[in-house]
């Protein structure tokens, strides 16, 4: 019951959060000194062409009216048409969403698989050489710029060792699109060639995104384990003669991961932000590269559409994290 209340409470905040997001992004978009109508009309357009297009696209109206109109459209499920691609923005976003999710989920999984065990090892071997090495690696992972890391990985694995593709999401145009997730689609269609290609293309961008995230998880997991490992209940479990490995992986980890799980929710948001850069470097056709193109073209509606979708994604992921949190620590479901 408490969990249901928590879900409803989070959902009640969803709409005001999204409304605030739309207002902020809309106002920022309009502060940028560009004229989207002139951009879409092209450099050869006459003033008459520009004026006609401005009326057609509704950019002749005052900002407040444009914002209200946009709210009306969004509420009716219509994000509008991209002034640049001429396609419905929802269509463009829907087509690109699986690419970003596939990348982000893979990166997040990698980060968890790397970060949690290493964080535990680091805590159990506190101040030993392995802890020092992991500390250097994790601090570096947090400090390194994502685009630099991306280019270095490209240079090493693609150009020098030639074991990974340089860019793109797959060779050619992908398998039969059942879900839009190439790995999943390849499995469904038993298209092993596409599966290999999709996995190999996924490796470098996912690794680039995963390393800083793994560093964060590692630090939180280490701190969590250190806090729990010295608590009275662990001392009691030791006194009871429970094997140390069982204490660590069953009792310590469960309690230590509470703050780490919360972090994972926040990391997902960071992954989506970094994806804007990584997708551009690796030509990954996802939401991030769509956002870059939209910003460069001053496609305000597309930028807002991207914000709504990613904002919605982050809200959903945080809701899932809260639910997971309440499973691990029922006291939190209040």
């Amino acid at each position: 019951m408490r969990r249901l209340e928590m879900v409803l409470s989070r959902l009640a905040w969803f709409f005001p959060t999204m409304a605030g997001l739309i207002v902020i992004v809309f106002l920022i978009s309009n502060v940028i000194p560009t004229d989207p109508v002139r951009i879409v009309a092209g450099e050869n357009a006459t003033p008459e062409q520009v004026a006609a297009l401005r009326v057609k696209l509704g950019y002749d109206k005052p900002i407040a009216i444009q914002l209200l109109n946009h709210f009306r459209d969004v509420l009716s499920g219509n994000l509008g048409v991209s002034i640049y691609t001429q396609r419905p923005i929802s269509e463009d976003l829907a087509k690109r969403l699986p690419a970003t999710l596939e990348l982000s989920i893979t990166a997040l999984s990698l980060a968890i698989l790397l970060g949690i065990p290493l964080g535990v090892v680091s805590a159990l071997r506190r101040n030993a050489w392995i802890d020092q090495v992991l500390r250097v690696i994790s601090v570096s992972g947090l400090a390194i710029a994502a685009f630099w890391l991306a280019m270095e990985l490209q240079f090493l694995f693609s150009m020098k060792l030639r074991v990974a593709p340089l860019n793109g999401r797959i060779d050619g145009f992908g398998p039969e699109p059942y879900t839009g997730f190439y790995v999943l689609d390849s499995l469904i269609g038993r298209d092993w060639e596409s599966l290999g290609s999709a996995l190999s293309h996924l490796a470098l961008p996912a690794l680039t995104l995963a390393l800083p995230a793994a560093a964060t998880i590692l630090r939180f997991a280490r701190a969590g384990v250190l806090e729990v490992i010295n608590s009275n209940h662990v001392l009691y479990q030791r006194a009871m003669g429970i094997p140390p490995r069982l204490i660590v992986w069953k009792y310590v980890l469960r309690n230590a991961l509470i703050s780490t799980v919360t972090q994972i929710g926040l990391i997902f948001g960071v992954l989506l932000t970094n994806a804007v850069v990584i997708e551009t470097v690796f030509d990954w056709p996802g939401l991030g590269s769509f956002a870059v193109q939209s910003i460069l073209q001053s496609d305000h509606k597309a930028i807002i559409g991207f914000t709504i979708w990613t904002g919605g994604l982050i809200v959903v992921v945080n809701l899932l994290v809260d639910l997971l949190h309440s499973v691990i620590d029922p006291r939190g479901a209040r």
Partner: peptide, 20 residues
């Protein structure tokens, strides 16, 4: 003929060298 969008100059150059 396949024309792909590759926005990063460095990636275009490396891809050409690599034979992609």
């Amino acid at each position: 003929i396949e024309f792909r969008t590759v926005l990063e100059t460095n990636t275009r150059v490396q891809g050409l060298i690599k034979g992609d």
